[in-house]
Structures are given as C-alpha cells and as structure tokens.
Design a protein around this nucleic acid. Structure first.
Lengths: 200, 200
DNA sequence: CAAAAGATAGTAATCAGTCACTATCTTTCC
DNA sequence: GGAAAGATAGTGACTGATTACTATCTTTTG
C-alpha cells in the first residue's frame, strides 16, 4: 500500500487539520512539528517542504480558524430574523463550533498568551478584535431596533458576550466534557439576555 | 553586598514571586528555570536545591495563588453587608487581584491548558472547582434571602460570573492594559447583576 | 523524463536536571 | 568568647534528551 503524495496546497490544509485535531487533546504550546507530522503520517522533515517555519504553520491555523468562525457567524447572523435573534444564533453557532472543534479555543488562548510579534499572534488579535467590533455593531442595531434598551452599554455587553462563551469553554476544559457545553449554553445565554434587557 | 544566602523556605517564596512576576509579561509555557533563576539573581542549578522538579515550582505557584485568592475573597465576602453585596465585593476583589498580579490569570490559563496529571494541574483544578462551588453556595444564599429570584439557575449564574471576569481578562491581555479592567469591570458587572435579577 | 513530494539522516541550540566543589551560616564545646 | 565542626545555600560546568530546521538522496506522478 503506497502512501499517496499530496499536492502542496492540499498538504497544507491537511496540516492545519492535524494541528487542530492535536490541540483538542494536547496543550498547543507543547505540540511539536514531529507530533504534527506523525499525526498526518508524514516525516517531520517533509513538513518543512510546505511551511518555511513552525510559526508559519500556526499562522495558517489562525487563518483557517478565522475563516471558519467568520463563515459560521455569517450563516448564523443571516439565520436570525432580527438583530437580537441573530445575536442568539451567533452565540449558539460559536458554541457549536467549539464543541465540534475543541482545539480551536485552546489554540486561540495559547496564541494570545504568547509574547513577541509573530504573524500568528497578529492574526489571533485581529480575529478577536474583529469579533468584538462586529458584536458592538450588532448590539447597536438591536438598540436602534428597540429590541434592546437604547441606553445599553454595548461595549460592556460585547465584552460579556465573549466572556460568556469563555466561561463555558473554561468549564469544558476543566471537566473535559465539551458536548456538555451545549446544554449549559442555553441556560447561561438566557441570563445574559436578561442582563442586556432583551426578550426573545 | 547584594548577595545573601536565604533560608530555604524564604528562597521558595522568592521563587514563587519571581515566577508570578515573569508571567506578567511572558508566556508561562515559555518560562524556563534559567529565566526564573536569573530574575532572582541565582544560578539555575541552585533552583533545584529547593525544588525537586520544575513542576514542583509550578505547584508551589498554584498553592500560593490559591491562598492569595482565597484570602482576598474571604475579606471581600466579609465586607459585604448581605449575600448579594458580598458577591459584588468578591467580583471587585477578584478584578483588583488580577490587576495587581497580571501573571496570575495567565498562569491559571496556562496550567489548565496542560495535559497529563501533574500536581500543579490538580491544584489549578481544585482552585477553580472550589471557586465555582463557593459561588453557587453564595448565590443560593442570595435566593434564600430574597435578594435574587428563587428560581434563579445558580449554576449557570456561577459559570457566568467566572466568564465575566475571564472576558475582562482576555480583553486586558489583548490590549495589554490591565488597569483599564477596573473601569470596565463595573460596567460589565451591572449587566451581570441585571441578568441574575439582582438590585443593589 | 523531470519536477514535485517524501524519506533519511543529519545539525546547532535549548532545556531540565546533576554534580563536585565552594561559600556562608549556625551550633558545639573548650 | 571564639575556634572548630557540621549544616545549609550557591556556583558553574556538565549531560542527555528534545527541538526546529536543513542537506541530500529516493520515490512518486503527470
């Protein structure tokens, strides 16, 4: 059974998937190029035919993560019949994404922890920053739409939205039970919704 | 004449402080025994006269963190004139602790990311687990006291409490401005308070 | 066949941990 | 009181394992 040689672009995609897979059960900071290669049935040296450095691998992972999350949030937002229901859809979509890919939040946390100015870290910052901005805008639309009080502190509300998901993630990381997030997500979101003065 | 031989117990305390200091500006996962030793003006080898392994250092850091946080939460809770105001005091005390010691949340995140069964990770788990339990009990007392609705989902409320702080921490980590947390803390907490149906 | 992809076998750097030795305390005992 | 003796703390050079990354040879594939 001969191993198949993949074209470079495809090999890069497989590499990103391998990293996300590994991060689901391992500390991202401890993932080595050797482990990545082994997980995709490749030798360690061959990895560097497709990525100039290890950090380039992490950057590719961040780019993939950003595009995946954005795509899911776009779909969720479109599903909402109003700004406020779009907010709820986005919340649930984010939780679903994390449950499906538990490595993602771990990679994001790990990347934000890192110091120095790498491409991967800049991508991570851009992802979270863009997310927050998007939330503030959506919350503003809810206010304009009278679905939320006009005097709502939308910046604080956006921070709390992100924190709400993070609290769920942290609990999942502690218990190791990511699917349980889904059940808790609804309960936590309803408290959040009440906090921002919303009603669905 | 700066050189001085410290007694072992004192040296261990200095070591913990050095680690917490370093974690404020460096990725905890990248802190080496050499960096710790250098920061406390000691040779790397001497560190191992006081700790059998590097993980023992991390465990000592976790024990210190747990005791510090517990002490501050105890004081805050005592300051509260009622269960609900105690909850608010604890929130503010936690934020103050993080602002004073930015390395602490980074260390906690980093420790929870790690895999395998180390003493340090068990301590981290115990800290967060105990915190959550404590919150649920306090929230239950708020309900019994009619300061919060009797039908409040106290487990979800505890999860959100932790997440609220985490959201603030993540924002601080992104901007690098930890003191700004304090201003945002009040704004976010008031949304949280409304969410759990409280009024102060 | 030729170019892309992978295998094999390296290298230099870094890390946690060790060890023989030295410096500095503290206690003992005349 | 003070020197001898033992205990404690620190030094600096080291080791073996691991790491990201590279150089060279081999296989696959269009």
């Amino acid at each position: 059974m001969a191993r198949q040689n993949l074209p470079a672009a495809q090999r890069r995609e497989v590499t990103v998937e391998a990293v996300v897979d590994l991060a689901a059960t391992r500390n991202p900071a401890e993932i080595t190029t050797g482990q990545i290669a082994e997980h995709m049935h490749l030798t360690q040296g061959a990895l560097f035919r497709h990525f100039p450095t290890k950090d380039a691998v992490w950057d590719a992972v961040m780019v993939w993560t950003a595009s995946q999350l954005t795509r899911r949030l776009d779909q969720a937002e479109a599903r909402g019949s109003s700004p406020l229901s779009a907010l709820e859809q986005m919340f649930l979509a984010h939780v679903d994404f994390v449950v499906a890919r538990p490595g993602v939040p771990r990679i994001l946390f790990g990347e934000l922890q890192r110091t120095g100015d790498t491409a991967a870290k800049r991508s991570a910052r851009a992802l979270i920053g863009g997310y927050r901005t998007r939330l503030v805008k959506l919350l503003d639309r809810c206010c304009a739409n009278a679905e939320l009080p006009a005097d709502l502190d939308t910046e604080a509300a956006a921070t709390l939205f992100v924190g709400t998901i993070q609290g769920l993630v942290m609990q999942a990381m502690m218990t190791g039970d990511f699917p349980a997030m889904r059940a808790m997500a609804g309960r936590v979101f309803s408290i959040y919704l009440k906090g921002i003065g919303g009603r669905l």
